[in-house]
Simulated scan of single mutants.
Amino acid sequence: MNIRCPHCNKLNRVANERLGEHPSCGACGEPLLTGVLSLDRTALDDLLAQSSLPVLVDFWAPWCGPCRMFAPTFEAAAKKHGQALIFAKLDTEANQAAGAKFNIRSIPTLAVFHRGQELGRVSGALPPAQLEELVGNVLAHTSKP
C-alpha cells in the first residue's frame, strides 16, 4: 500500500502485513502512522481495501469552520493512537465523488472502517474527551479476534 508521510509528504510503499510494525518514512525517518494522512478518493479506497488496522476518516471541507476547529483535536489523537489506528482526512470539496460515494451529508463526519467495512460514523466536531472515547471503543471492538 502507498502511504504519504504526514511529516514530509513523501510517498512510501508499505506492505499491509507491516502496518502493525510501526513503519517509518524512507525519506525523513518519522513514523508514518503517527499523523493524519491526507487522502483523495483513490488513496482512501486503496487504504480501506488493504489495511488490516482500523481507519478513522475525517470527511471535511476547507470552508467549514467546525472542521478547521476540530483539526487540532484529530491531529492530537493521531499522534497518541497512530500506531493502533490509522487517522485519515478527505477533503469533500476537492473530492466530491468520494463524498457522494460515502454518503456524506454533513461535515465534519467521522467514519470508522475495519477490513474494508464501515463500522459506524459520527457527525459534528467532537471535543477531545468524546474523540478519545470513540477511539477507545474502536480499538476495543477491532482488537477482538
Rank of each mutant, 00 (worst) to 15 (best):
C28D: 04
A61Y: 00
N103G: 04
N95K: 12
F87G: 10
A77S: 05
A100W: 04
D40Q: 08
R4L: 02
A49C: 07
R4N: 02
A78Y: 11
C5A: 09
L110Q: 07
H141P: 00
P6C: 02
P23E: 01
E118M: 14
S51P: 04
M69F: 13
N95Y: 10
S38A: 03
N103Q: 06
E75K: 07
M1V: 14
C8Y: 11
P6I: 00
H81L: 09
A100G: 07
C8K: 10
E17S: 09
Q130G: 15
A97G: 15
R41P: 09
N137F: 02
R41H: 11
R13H: 13
H22M: 10
G136M: 05
E75S: 06
L139M: 15
A88T: 06
S51N: 03
P145N: 08
N16A: 09
L39H: 05
E21T: 11
P62L: 02
W60R: 07
A61I: 00
E132Y: 15
P62G: 00
H7F: 15
G120P: 01
L48D: 01
L134R: 05
A27Q: 01
R105C: 00
V36H: 02
P72E: 07
V112L: 15
N95T: 07
N95R: 06
N12Q: 01
G124A: 05
L19N: 00
P66E: 00
H22N: 14
Q130H: 15
A94D: 14
H141E: 11
G35W: 11
S52K: 02
N137T: 05
G116I: 10
G35R: 14
G29A: 02
P127W: 08
R115V: 03
T109P: 04
S24L: 10
L126T: 13
F102D: 01
P108G: 06
G116C: 11
E75Y: 04
V112T: 15
Q96D: 03
Q50C: 03
L119E: 13
D58I: 09
L134T: 06
A125M: 11
N16D: 12
V14R: 13
P6M: 01
T92F: 08
K101M: 06
Q96V: 05
F113L: 06
E75G: 04
R105W: 01
G82K: 11
A27I: 00
E118V: 15
R13P: 08
P31I: 00
G35H: 11
T142P: 08
G82E: 01
R121V: 05
G82S: 13
D46G: 08
A140Q: 10
V36I: 01
N137I: 04
G82V: 11
N16E: 13
A71F: 02
S24Y: 08
V14H: 11
A88L: 05
K80T: 09
P72S: 13
E133P: 00
P72V: 14
Q96E: 04
E133M: 12
H7T: 15
Q130L: 15
F59R: 12
L11T: 12
E118H: 14
A125V: 10
A100S: 06
K10F: 05
V36R: 03
T73A: 00
L53C: 10
L33Y: 04
G124Y: 03
A71K: 08
G20C: 12
C5E: 12
L37K: 05
A129Q: 14
N16R: 07
A97K: 12
V14Q: 09
